[in-house]
Design a protein around this nucleic acid. Structure first.
Lengths: 266, 266
DNA sequence: CGACTTCTTGAATTAGGTCAATCCCTGTGG
DNA sequence: CCACAGGGATTGACCTAATTCAAGAAGTCG
């Protein structure tokens, strides 16, 4: 979120600035334990700085990496955000993740030495670039490195499982509600406001991520707004009624009860 | 596939038996490198047998493990098949995987010590049960164990990325075609026939997995059959026109081209 | 100030979901 | 050996949610 956007948004939704405070501290970074483990090798902070090869800045729309490219580095987001997506040969794109500060990108390509997806900055984004090679080298002696990597990967797997649950068979309202609540929780985890934040993705991206049309995203936003459950202004969102949204996100569909029986045997 | 089913199916589709040959050999198992690494500790084969705690048999519909249960073991499928699924609090079920011989289940729960999903046998299924504890113990000294686990996990991640691509925005025909072709390729990999196989999942399960209604699965099967691209008899399937099915699975939708541009910037 | 995106809304269309009836296996018990 | 019960699978009819197409409004950027 740029300074300008923020200022304009504040006119409509006059509340304290959110996520304007910049990068996460290393200690709040989800990758900290990984970096820390690397850092254990020598004097604490200085080596940490050396191992984390570079701090890079990507502007909105710039590629961090492409699928099938040699996976030489993993990237930890310090500030900003990024999306990851996969493509069919036919060129269709599916966004598979929205990544916030403190999260790690590019680890899934660890074994094949190639990235499995592409990552792109959604706004001006600062990242730490960590050498995969170096990671592997240290891991040879330090099993905790590998354990951290496994931890991060299984987090990724859980994320995908939740996303699959969402894409499986939910209507547009439930998808969007769940999406917003998920974001809300993640922001809360990162010490940002859970009720006011910047989506950083366009309506088109959100639609793609949730498996619905861009126009449908707009319409559902409008409906939610008419009900007074939230306010949007472009990519800035303010949630007014978390309970209501939760109810929508969790409300089991008509066939949901039957599905349990259906699946419990076969 | 039971002997009886096979015989009956042969009346309609008189071809050589497929997947009737039973369990995979350890060497053909996708987990082999893991087991082998464990086995390196002592005299080769005997210790392998000891580490792989038990060979268990699950009957159709029986649970291998439940989500949130302590993840004490991982399971390698020797013969048969299993499905994995996740649930919402509301009780909705989403099938997230169909697993064939040589594949490993339950590793994603590694870090949290709890399974992230539940697994259920789709037919009479023989598995190797490997102690997570023992795995961890050996991994402390043998980094290759962890590397194997990372390899398997990133395979899981790639699988989910493909599935997301499928669920994102494809019509029912493309979903089913892609599903069948994916299975076909996996069977080929496992030295089974790529054109005749047992789906082992019910129509309802397939629909759930692909995010479409059971009835739609039927209708699409019927359509494909009318076109002469395949033959089905209950869960047994024979693909006649892989090219055609590939064309359907890959054919980019109307908006697909636009989506590239749409997503390449924002 | 234009040129270009992104977002929003409306209207028409449709793919797929839902409900319901029936068929077809398969396994069981007489 | 045959009848029957029960669970999948299939098909039809109807209907709704969401997509698509299209046009315009609201921002953004150079």
């Amino acid at each position: 979120m740029t300074e300008a956007t923020l200022k304009r948004a504040s006119v409509v939704v006059p509340l304290a600035p959110v996520r304007a405070c910049g990068a996460v501290a290393c200690r709040d970074c989800g990758v900290y334990r990984l970096c820390a483990a690397l850092g254990l090798e020598g004097d604490e902070l200085s080596l940490l700085e050396r191992v984390v090869k570079r701090k890079l800045i990507f502007k909105r729309g710039e590629l961090l990496f492409r699928a099938r490219e040699p996976a030489d580095y993993v990237y930890a987001i310090r500030s900003g955000s990024a999306k990851t997506c996969v493509r069919t040969e036919g060129g269709r794109v599916q966004i598979t993740g929205l990544h916030l500060p403190g999260e790690l990108l590019g680890l899934a390509g660890f074994d094949s030495r190639e990235y499995t997806c592409e990552a792109r900055a959604l706004e001006t984004t600062s990242v730490c670039q960590v050498s995969m090679h170096q990671l592997e080298e240290v891991a040879e002696r330090l099993p905790s490195i590998h354990r951290e990597m496994l931890r991060i990967m299984s987090g990724q797997i859980r994320h995908y499982e939740q996303l699959l649950l969402l894409l499986g068979k939910h209507n547009a309202e439930r998808r969007l509600a769940a999406f917003l609540l998920g974001l809300s929780q993640r922001f809360a985890l990162h010490h940002y406001s859970p009720t006011q934040f910047n989506l950083s993705m366009s309506r088109g991206d959100i639609g793609n991520y949730l498996g619905i049309a861009e126009e449908t995203v707009c319409r559902v936003f409008t409906r939610f707004q008419e009900e007074g459950w939230l306010t949007t202004r472009r990519r800035y969102v303010e949630l007014h009624d978390l309970e209501r949204l939760t109810a929508i996100a969790h409300d089991p569909g008509r066939r949901a009860a039957a599905a349990t029986a259906l699946t419990s045997v076969a």
